[in-house]
Design a protein around this nucleic acid. Sequence first.
DNA 1: AAAAGTTGTTTGCTCATACAAATATAAAGG
DNA 2: CCTTTATATTTGTATGAGCAAACAACTTTT
Lengths: 151, 151
Amino acid sequence: MLDIYFKECLYFSANRLGRIITKMAEDAFASSGVSPTAAFLLMALYERDGISQKELGQILHLQPSTVTRLIEKLAAKQLLYNRVDGRLSLIYATDKGKSLEAVLHQCWDALRERYRAILGDEEDGLSLHLYEVCNQLEQPNGGSTRFPAAP
Amino acid sequence: MLDIYFKECLYFSANRLGRIITKMAEDAFASSGVSPTAAFLLMALYERDGISQKELGQILHLQPSTVTRLIEKLAAKQLLYNRVDGRLSLIYATDKGKSLEAVLHQCWDALRERYRAILGDEEDGLSLHLYEVCNQLEQPNGGSTRFPAAP
DNA sequence: AAAAGTTGTTTGCTCATACAAATATAAAGG
DNA sequence: CCTTTATATTTGTATGAGCAAACAACTTTT
């Protein structure tokens, strides 16, 4: 097999995993009527209603423009609305949005159940591990020094 | 921090990792003039010139239509050409395509160097591990039984 | 050897995400 | 106060990948 060759490439494996798990997540959230990422955005609102768009971006690790577009869609579905406060755009869940909370948590649990059932031990802490890896990779200095740059 | 909440979600972490590593890979391959995925396609050709599109899809874990589009672009750049053989479309690297081999391997090595330098031990076998995880997740029966379906 | 089925590829469309530039508001300095 | 600079959001545009349906070519059946 030639693909042996690519197995060791993180770009390759990470993206492949992303595609697979995205499809699983889309299935899991299909009944809720919102995409997985949109679901996470709403779940963030349940924790912090009135959060700013910028913070949403930080929590979801998405670019501001991506958040804008997500919010547009969810606002069109009347699941949330925004109130402009100075240069901030504060986001609130509507009642309709709030009413999804239970469903979304169910979908989320179902998703996790599903991949845990398949992966067994393999899953153990995998998400957390990947999260750590992301954080390391995102450090601007690439982790090459242990200390922040001098002022 | 609210994002504690999402760390345990594989959908979340895997896609975040995908975005980060994709950007790193794009940087690494920028000098070669082709995207990372296109680079892998070409590297597959170096190993098996005249491979069919279907096989390319299997090796790269991409859908047939995605492979078609990739090949269109690379053909436009004169890096490969295809010869139709029955219903197969066999793909060959052009001389120009072949001349990229050394550069692409350098880019690939540079990419790996870079994330290995950042991740250290954390990287150890990560790609391979993810590859395994992908394979398990992709089994149609979701891994719920140990045996193939009866005939 | 024609009909029906199978397999490989292509086409049209959609989606999620992002970048870069534009815009809007606020904060700081003279 | 007015100008400059910083910050938050939006807009226009692009890219990578996918699905579903169409198409094309081979295979099986009869």
